[in-house]
Design a binder for these strands. Sequence first.
RNA 1: GCGGCGUUAGCCUAGUGGUAAGGCCCUGGAAUGUGGAUCCAGUCAGAGCGGUUCAAUUCCGCUACGCCGCCCCA
Length: 458
Amino acid sequence: MPTYQAPRGMRDLVPADAAAFDGLQAVVQARAERYGFARIVTPAVEDREVFLRTSGLTSDAAGKEMYEVALHGEGTLALRPEGTAPVVRAFLQAGLHRSPQPVRLFYFEPMWRGQRPQALRFRQFWQWGLECFGAAEPAADVEIVAFTARFFAEVGLSAVELQLNTIGDDACRPKIKAALGEYFDKYRDELDDDCRRRLGGSVLRIFDCKNPHDRAIAADAPKTRELICDEDRAHFAAVTDGLDRLGVAYRVVDTLVRGLDYYTRTVCEFVLTDPAFTKAGEIAVAAGGRYDGLVAAMGGPAAPGVGIAGGVDVLLSALRQEGVAMRAGPKADVYVISGGGDDAADRLQLADPLREAGFSVGVDYSSRPLEKQLESALKHGARVAVIRGTPEARGGNVVVRDLVAKTQRVTRLAAVVTEVGRHVSRRVAPRLWTPDEHEPGAAGETPFLVDPADPKEA
RNA sequence: GCGGCGUUAGCCUAGUGGUAAGGCCCUGGAAUGUGGAUCCAGUCAGAGCGGUUCAAUUCCGCUACGCCGCCCCA
């Protein structure tokens, strides 16, 4: 047993895990770019107030479950427990509220919460998320929800259900809370202790109570969908209509509310439906909604917003449960081995041009028998072995052997890159920059096509 | 944060108040220097600390970590 263990609720992403994470990030980030959401990265820590302001002091989680960060024993920083508040802070600090609206942002970052760990509940976990500021239109709600539905379909998550509800906006909230308070007050004596506490404050959260009897009471409560104002109703109708048009399936769940008070109008959750995940209640793999008052609450101008965030750890677990193949750890396609004894420098020299040409190349450093090196090349996942230091490979030649086809060819050193290329493909190397796709001709067509219908210039 | 149940090697799994067993993986070797097989060998363990005991991996306590239920789930 190792002397040290990872801190409670935190885990290492060993190469197999990290590869799956990388694959998922690449997929969600590429989709974000296709939808016009640009990545934003904020610090792992923020002033505690950033979270307290948004989450509200009513929420236990905001206070008790936050990791506080101290420097020399003092400080007011906390590890980020969620993504929205820091993004709002950065949005305001960078003056993005004065850039063309709406502003669409994407993130993929670790979060920390001091909650008791259980399966799929970690103290450090990863979330991807979208935030859209400056758009009050229901189309913005539709877009982030559709993004998520399409994303899950793309990666192969099928055992998932989209739940939707509307809880009205700030103007309407008092009316809704009053109506619900009046209803639940009639059952004050029947609600369990934890639930009754919510009667005083977050009345909406009574819908989240676990006690079966409480749930039965909540099931008969007035529906927020019916208590909301006309404008809210029209907004929600436009959201559901937009999803219908895109063919995104959803279920309206009258008892769906969110943990925080800053949500307005649309709330949504993507819930796992595989029996493996429903034993202990529903597990959300993504959740979000509209928060039209949040930017103002953070000290900014009145700017509407809507966002969604999803748990990466949960999603990966669900995908594994469904048997979706994950990107494996990087394996060398080519392995350089030698029967020539202590000639590691020669092997590196042989590997170098292959690597520069884009191949993934591992080198055996040892002087073990050739058989052992071949075996090792196979175990490292190589498809091709480049062999030097054997009788056939003399006088500026090497052997390029296909380990799967079990065929080989003696090749001149100068032709190794070409020969290897016949058996494995080059890796796509990322670029530091991309050409300007808006330049005429960038897409391959002739710039300034002449339309015969256009009036000729004089 | 509260309660319950757990922790034997890198992984999986036995067993025991008195020398801790096996499989996989890994490493080396054999036959051969062009292969994952086979054979032989090797490395590696009772989470940590304390207590009871002649003796503790085994019984008890504390701590760490995990799982389950609460709390909470931004």
